[in-house]
Simulated scan of single mutants.
Amino acid sequence: MRNTWKNLALGTLLLGGIATQTACSNSDSDGSPEKTRLQIALTDDPGDFAEVWIDVKEIRINSSDADDQNWVPLAGVKAGAYNLLELVNDRDTILADAEIPTGKISQIRLVLGDNNYLVTNEGERIDLTTPSAQQSGLKLNIHQAVVGGIINKLTLDFDVAKSIVKAGNSGKYILKPVIRTILEAVGGNIRGGVLPDSVQTAVLAIQGQDTIASTYSLGGGYLIRGIPAGAYDLHFLPTDTNFLPAVKPGVPVVLGQVTTVDTVRLPLK
């Protein structure tokens, strides 16, 4: 998808995976399949609610290209209720930490229970219903290699604003998760700050006309996770119209590293 930063300023955020990594050898010296360590983490971007709780029951993994078979429950999943809005701006929680065969992850399924709900800024609790098509688990396409000898951390980055849909004027809300998957072994991170810290600001990492990833600042800080190595122009788009956008060009990203960017001060109109 190709979007200009002006389009994204209106709320269109690009979701997607990162480029595929080369796998290591596929067996140990004793002839058994080589194992690699996979962590699955959950994080979120800020949303306009006080709390958003999801009920995680199970994670299933598929290493084949057949999406109707070969699904295997992932060991060590920490089932339970998670408040997504506690997991923002460089905070996450590990949902699973397990050994799997080295090779490729084609897909995973995030299986949720029935105890999903939100709390409005006014303190009202509202249950979130889940479409019947997702009751067998939300399928996420990965299609990336996992490498032996390192921790491969797969982060599930919820977009709360897009994941919660109001059902007309009924007062009901539907949970239709929109999740960006990030395998940190194949990407780098960008961290920085925006002033004034009271102004929520969209931060976009752009190459040419392509927006590769985006997030919002929280308390003046931001973190863009898991993007390919290269140079990016960072665009800062404040939600407060008393301030002008800002750009920081040529920010380098290195695989497996965090690039810390000098704090940007938004200019007043």
Rank of each mutant, 00 (worst) to 15 (best):
212 I>W: 12
196 P>Y: 09
227 I>M: 11
210 D>W: 06
244 L>V: 06
261 V>T: 02
202 A>Q: 13
260 T>H: 09
194 V>K: 11
237 L>C: 02
250 G>C: 12
207 Q>N: 10
226 G>S: 00
193 G>N: 09
246 A>N: 05
210 D>F: 13
233 D>C: 04
194 V>P: 07
191 R>V: 13
245 P>Y: 09
224 I>W: 07
258 V>L: 03
226 G>Q: 00
229 A>N: 02
226 G>H: 00
240 D>N: 13
216 Y>S: 14
263 T>A: 15
223 L>R: 15
239 T>A: 15
236 F>S: 08
209 Q>C: 05
249 P>K: 11
263 T>S: 15
234 L>E: 06
262 D>V: 04
211 T>E: 07
223 L>I: 13
251 V>I: 00
243 F>P: 13
244 L>F: 11
234 L>K: 08
245 P>R: 04
219 G>A: 06
251 V>N: 01
260 T>Q: 11
248 K>C: 06
205 A>P: 01
191 R>T: 12
200 Q>S: 14
198 S>N: 07
218 L>A: 11
215 T>D: 08
260 T>I: 09
216 Y>F: 14
195 L>A: 15
254 V>A: 11
258 V>D: 10
248 K>D: 06
225 R>A: 08
229 A>E: 10
220 G>H: 04
262 D>K: 13
229 A>G: 10
215 T>Y: 06
245 P>D: 12
205 A>W: 01
252 P>G: 02
228 P>Y: 05
250 G>N: 15
219 G>Q: 04
249 P>R: 03
259 T>D: 03
249 P>L: 04
226 G>D: 00
236 F>Q: 05
250 G>T: 11
255 L>V: 15
261 V>Y: 02
256 G>R: 09
194 V>E: 10
240 D>K: 06
235 H>R: 13
245 P>V: 12
261 V>H: 00
244 L>D: 14
259 T>F: 12
254 V>E: 13
236 F>D: 08
207 Q>D: 06
237 L>P: 00
214 S>K: 03
194 V>N: 08
195 L>V: 03
229 A>R: 10
220 G>I: 03
189 N>E: 14
215 T>F: 01
238 P>V: 05
